[in-house]
Design a binder for these strands. Structure first.
Lengths: 189, 189
DNA sequence: GGGTGCATGTAATGGGTTACATGATTCT
DNA sequence: AGAATCATGTAACCCATTACATGCACCC
């Protein structure tokens, strides 16, 4: 048996619980409307992980009965859990290559008609144009709703990351579309 | 039993084999010095996958004996394999959220000293500053060595993606470092 | 003699999503 | 009547990396 805390998932859960006591269901919902653009967890990870965290004494479980609905299992950070989270936050980030299917398809793009790649890149452009707007909206909302939260600057940093990245990809997509059109024209001649 | 060709890995292999006949070992080496910055495969994936592709008739295996060294199993694309690759290249890219541990740690950054986050962001800055230079070098090399290859424009598009993305992250990291220093100063007062 | 490169492959393990199973309440 | 939301959990499955197993040749 391994000690809970090595992987990122349990530590992400500890982090979310540091915002306040929550159930597995709540955690999933919170992820989807906060860190969802750079982190995801499924129930199949959350529930077993919470159980293990509880067994390791890093979180505490309290069952609250509800009318009609199933019992709610609310978890909260223990002192040990808080310590573990802080330790993990200090560990240097290990960046691994994340696979990019768009680039893979583009790399072999010469094997198909230029219009195929154009379509892929156009979709990418649309996605990130929308994303930039979304990030701006999120930042605006955060600045309003969490104006006095000491965590606000950190949250804005992550949003800004997304914004800058998406803006860059918009730029790339536009450049790339032009290049693809150029290829298409020279091919037809 | 499933038909080979659904996942990205077998199709990536087909793509690489479209560049010429190769062994599993060659494929790994080629990945590492070409698409390695946005795609990776391990032997544990490559060898079994090639076997399945051969069973499905998408690639053809030829064993060439070598002096001293173990036999080399050279695979080449069949017509069916080429067709499968082209079909796959047309399928719209499904972008899923890729987890970002740096952002996760930054999101909970208020739970630790600002210097911790500063260190993470500084590492990110360094990584991407180096990356920009690497991408430039790769592009230069490609323009020289593959000047007449019709695939060159596509390869440059993928390199340019990396370049633009890394340059954007350098910008973000610099901004973020300033912000972290600001937080540090206001905290000390 | 020992490290590195060539060359193949399997088994163990890890980390994750999806589908399944259950069931009441509330909204349309 | 039916869909969505609340709520928890397990089992099956998929995909991927790492470790293991083997062994020769070449260079230092």
């Amino acid at each position: 048996m391994r000690i809970e805390g090595g992987g990122a998932t349990p530590n992400a859960l500890l982090g979310l619980l540091s915002l306040g006591p929550m159930s597995g269901y709540d955690i999933k919902a919170l992820i989807d409307r906060s860190i969802g653009y750079f982190w995801s967890e499924s129930y199949g990870q959350i529930y077993p992980s919470l159980k293990r965290l509880a067994a390791a004494g890093l979180v505490e479980k309290k069952t609250s009965r509800q009318k009609g609905r199933p019992d709610k299992h609310v978890y909260s950070l223990t002192a040990a859990g808080q310590a573990q989270l802080q330790e993990w936050l200090k560990v240097p980030v290990t960046e691994e290559v994340n696979r990019n299917e768009l680039l893979l398809k583009l790399f072999f793009g010469e094997r198909v008609a230029p219009s195929v790649c154009r379509e892929h890149v156009r979709a990418c452009l649309e996605t990130h144009e929308r994303a930039v707007k979304t990030y701006d909206a999120i930042a605006k909302g955060l600045r309003k709703d969490s104006a006095n939260d000491p965590q606000l600057p950190y949250w804005l940093m992550t949003v800004n990351f997304g914004r800058i990245r998406s803006a860059a990809l918009v730029k790339w997509a536009k450049e790339t579309l032009k290049e693809l059109e150029r290829i298409e024209k020279t091919q037809k001649k």
